[in-house]
């Protein structure tokens, strides 16, 4: 920005100024090229619809990348928590059902599962899932902390990926 001038400038306060301004004001506009208006109108017709012309039903969800990444991480964390949290009650219910006394008539009506399946599903034999849950419980904070760490890892990986893409000139 140019510095302000003093309010009264004797150099710019003479009769020359009026004469100069009169000369400048007499300057006519450049003539308009004959085809220009037609060309502009044609370009407007050929142009796609302006943003305000697009139908309102068109999806227009535009979130910043950071928000999208955060939303994805929250979704992953929620899904992980639901999955891990969901396994516990399901397995507990299954164990309750398995240990409950079954009426004789019902037990006789059910087909007997093969011995191999019975051996695998026996709660007495530790399964791979049991080992996983035991391992997760050994971590400070339990499965909850694993979910949080996973979400953070996802966030970090996305952020690093975005930085890398930007460094390579992509979008």
């Amino acid at each position: 920005m140019a510095p302000d001038l003093p309010p009264h400038d004797p150099l710019d306060d003479d009769a020359d100024r009026d004469a100069l301004e009169a000369r400048l004001r007499a300057e006519p506009l450049w003539p308009l090229p004959v085809a220009l208006v037609g060309r502009v109108t044609a370009a407007l017709r050929a142009a796609g619809p302006a943003p305000w012309e697009r139908p309102a039903s068109e999806p227009a969800l535009r979130l910043p990348r950071a928000l999208r990444v955060a939303a994805a991480a929250v979704l992953v964390a929620a899904a992980g928590a639901t999955a891990i949290g969901g396994i516990e009650p399901v397995s507990a219910t299954a164990a309750t059902v398995a240990s409950a006394p079954v009426p004789e008539a019902v037990r006789d009506a059910w087909p007997v599962p093969p011995a191999s399946l019975r051996a695998v599903s026996s709660p007495a034999v530790p399964t791979a899932r049991d080992a996983l849950v035991a391992g997760a419980d050994a971590v400070p904070g339990g499965t909850g902390s694993l979910v949080v760490v996973g979400a953070l890892a996802l966030l970090t990986a996305t952020w690093l990926g975005a930085r890398r893409r930007r460094a390579l000139g992509g979008r």
Binding site: L29, L32, P33, V40
Partner: peptide
């Protein structure tokens, strides 16, 4: 609007 202002803008 194009017809009205094209000359001024061009100038």
């Amino acid at each position: 609007l194009v017809a009205r202002y094209a000359r001024r803008l061009h100038d």
